[in-house]
Design a protein around this nucleic acid. Structure first.
Lengths: 341, 341
DNA sequence: GAGGGCGCTTGACATTTGTCAGAAACACCG
DNA sequence: CGGTGTTTCTGACAAATGTCAAGCGCCCTC
């Protein structure tokens, strides 16, 4: 603590050779464990404050220090409780509204972040996690913590080649499995094939049959929902021309759930793709114990409502404005979302 | 995203009154979950920054946010590993040295803090925790988190009326049980009685026999060690005059462990109190699966060494200087010519 | 309706913390 | 030995954070 002219102070006798990594542990304990200030930690360790700040950053990076939020944090909100009560959900997590008008990409980022928190309690070793696809699911993958669940499995829930490359079903499963250190089980089949006969033949393949059995054994499923607005396009131009969305919308479909088109009551709507899709059956999805739906934004509201009405989700992750729309309230004109119940 | 504040969540257990509204939850999520700055959180919520800081403090107080240290943090230190290897311990947690010369009370405080971290992994519901007494154990009690382990038990490990009132065996068990929300099982008997006959008669009491059975079933025991220096005095003036310490020291005792006097090898030393003590037998202690010893400071060094040599501890919680002394290194910048034993 | 207590909020301030460029230490190599 | 790339540390600064007294609204009492 007292420095005279001596350049080398040697304040607390530090065996010079070996203690490279120890300083980080000391610092983490003194700061987080004993709640000292960085200044005091620096004095105690005989290094500069800046070094202490660096040590602490390193300790967090290494996971020596973890900050844990109550898992049901955002389900405790009045909005979340209202949603859960209205649609019979186990829980609904509601992200706060942004101060500026929401950019869809940033909305997806927050929903992914929140979704990662929501599913965290189920990420135990040995768990089987069914994963759909989409940009929101991709954000969830990025927000997931790094774990080492060697006996856990990540299972692709629908056939491949849906969505853009970056957020395709395989990309989502691979990324999530990689984060979790889990085994990745992919569907080695396309999402849509050209004929019912080929579809039936594929479904008879032993490998696919095994995969469907795995799907029915998932402990938890994670998926988004797609809307069927006028501007909806799919990237798979072979089987999904823009007209498909229009056709299904005309046929009464309110949204797309893991490749299946559903109406406002949640019933599957027949259409041009019927019998040619390879993905989990909606009835099998509904039978899983935990089904987390991540979606938000004005365009998706009706699709989400249809999903919830159909009972396909046990947990919803959405944003505050969408939550208000789902509850039939008028979304607030401006910010300042203070509501007193 | 830093946060100082208490290392151990210290919520005032509030049963149902979950009022206060959603603002606190929003703030906790935006700050800890999305890593926004308090400024941005304030803008998003439409309140002042100061309020956000208050919300966050409240969230921490309620335990919505918990800061978790790696449980074996301080056992990973080279000093801790060296101690564990030298004495055959499962682990040794070593508190950092203080910058100023250590005040015994502050040393006890840090050891208690650290000990609370060390035993945290074993504090599950249904666990049985044996608790001795002493000022260090008392500090551990204060550092323990508030839990609600209704089926856990805290068991008094030695008879009563030892130590000062504040750190007596009953005080320690009651406080710890209160913190944990656990059932408190006290020894309704004194630690020392005036005759062997009375002692034997007491031990035959069914209630005491049951208590001893409980002691042998503890999942974890927590205790300190006492030294036998020239200045050692006990507060129980009926049975423990200052001369007792002197007598036992003359007889070769290096320290006191839960009321039992042991020599440098850890063997129990007979003396004036033999056959009149009511406490767990040392052999029963050594048979427990987890035995956490909290002690530090120059005066206690030999007593700790005796305890470790006897195999009575599976885990040690001490400070860096004591650790160095135990390992036979010369303590830093000290030129005490020591009296030869 | 004035007064006073209570809780929540706020602006201002002092402290604490993250960051970054440059300095020192170190290792490696010509 | 000196050069040089690499790592680690440090000092200084800007940003972020905690704290406090004063301000405001609300409810209750008299």
């Amino acid at each position: 603590m007292e420095h005279s002219g001596k350049p080398i102070a040697e304040p607390t006798s530090q065996p010079p050779a070996e203690t490279g990594g120890d300083a980080i542990l000391w610092a983490a304990w003194l700061y987080y464990g004993e709640a000292l200030t960085q200044n005091d930690v620096a004095a105690s360790l005989g290094v500069s404050r800046a070094s202490v700040a660096n040590y602490l950053a390193e300790a967090r990076r290494r996971g020596l220090v973890q900050i844990h939020l109550a898992p049901d944090l955002l389900s405790r909100l009045s909005l979340g409780r209202a949603l859960a009560a209205r649609f019979g959900l186990q829980a609904a997590a509601v992200a706060p509204p942004a101060d500026t008008s929401e950019d869809p990409a940033s909305l997806r980022r927050r929903l992914g972040l929140l979704g990662a928190q929501v599913i965290a309690p189920w990420l135990s070793d040995g768990a089987t996690l069914g994963v759909a696809w989409g940009r929101t699911v991709l954000e969830l993958a990025h927000a997931l913590p790094t774990r080492a669940l060697a006996r856990a499995e990540v299972v692709q829930i629908s056939g491949s080649s849906l969505g853009e490359d970056a957020s395709s079903p395989e990309a989502c499963t691979v990324l999530i499995a990689n984060r979790l250190g889990a085994r990745c089980r992919n569907f080695h089949a396309p999402a849509v094939v050209s004929s019912r006969g080929l579809c039936a033949a594929l479904l008879d393949e032993p490998a696919l049959a095994r995969h469907f059995a795995r799907l029915r054994g998932c402990d938890i499923a994670v998926f988004g929902v797609g809307e069927l607005g006028p501007g909806t396009v799919w990237s798979d131009t072979d089987f999904l021309p823009a007209s498909v969305a229009h056709d299904y919308r005309e046929a009464g479909s309110a949204g797309v759930l893991i490749g299946r088109f559903i109406d406002a009551k949640g019933r599957e709507v027949p259409g041009p793709l019927s019998g040619r899709q390879i993905a989990i059956a909606l009835a099998d999805l509904a039978a899983l114990p935990v089904r987390v739906c991540l979606a938000g934004g004005p365009a998706k509201t009706e699709a989400i409502r249809a999903t919830l009405t159909g009972g396909y989700a046990s947990h919803l992750v959405t944003d505050a404005e969408t939550a208000r729309r789902l509850l039939g309230e008028t979304p607030p004109e401006e910010s300042h979302p203070k509501e007193t119940p």
